[in-house]
């Protein structure tokens, strides 16, 4: 297993946001986490990235316990997150945003990765000198993903990548995610758009009020009655 989470809990003050969560992600897998607003999905990603502390449980990455490792060292190890709401560095140029994504890499490696991202996302190459805040929502999402890829992720965490995007752009985002998996990147995607996320996922988890309530293959979850009723509106 690339990522192995066992019995993980996290608190905001006295409020328990994660309750005994256990999740496994294998190398090369595309795993989706679906659930309603406030179920603890974003908190889970923040604990995996080391932004929020865990109050109990363990996080193993590549067999090593990283539960208390600071966020920058996790990025160096290959855990890279695209945060909810894109969070590009709006006043900085597109190219600088990408370079920041490669902050933990050496200068030569960063240049190489930059060329690769411009190849993958030609629209970003065209606006490389524009401030990132001037890009459209869809392009900002593209930039946020490209910035994360600059860090050469072994595990890419995506938090609500389709949030606030027009339907056509949502499809584009999911196409990108599928392409990344096909290129060998391990992806853990958190989505409210449960149908599309589960459709492309190898496996999925369903979260409710801080707990994992269902775990199965993406296809099985799509036909699960409980998931259909609660998240797919069927």
């Amino acid at each position: 297993m690339l990522l192995e989470i066992t019995g993980l809990s996290a608190h905001y003050g006295r409020i328990r946001a994660l309750d005994n969560v256990s999740i496994e992600i294998g190398e090369g897998e595309l795993v989706a986490l679906v659930g309603a607003n406030g179920a603890g999905k974003t908190t889970l990603l923040r604990v995996i990235s080391g932004i929020r502390p865990a109050s109990a449980g363990r996080v193993l990455f590549d067999g090593k316990d990283i539960t208390r490792m600071p966020p920058d060292r996790r990025v160096r190890r290959g855990i890279v997150q695209v945060p909810e709401g894109r969070q590009v560095f709006a006043p900085m140029r597109v190219e600088e945003n990408l370079l920041m994504g490669g902050y933990t890499r050496g200068a030569a490696e960063r240049r190489e990765a930059l060329a690769l991202q411009y190849e993958r996302f030609p629209a970003l190459a065209a606006s490389r000198n524009k401030p990132a805040g001037m890009l459209s929502g869809g392009q900002q999402q593209m930039l946020a993903v490209a910035r994360a890829l600059m860090g050469k992720p072994r595990l890419l965490l995506l938090d609500e990548p389709s949030l606030g995007l027009a339907p056509r752009l949502v499809d584009e985002v999911f196409d990108t995610v599928t392409a990344l998996r096909d290129a060998g990147v391990t992806v853990f995607i958190v989505e409210q758009n449960a149908f599309q996320a589960l459709s492309i996922a190898d496996r999925g988890y369903v979260m409710e009020t801080g707990q994992v309530v269902l775990a199965d293959t993406g296809k099985a979850l799509l036909t699960n009655e409980r998931v259909k009723a609660a998240y797919l509106g069927l």
Partner: peptide, 9 residues
């Protein structure tokens, strides 16, 4: 937050 997620200490 975004800076930390990019690996900035």
């Amino acid at each position: 937050l975004a800076a930390q997620l990019a690996g900035v200490n």
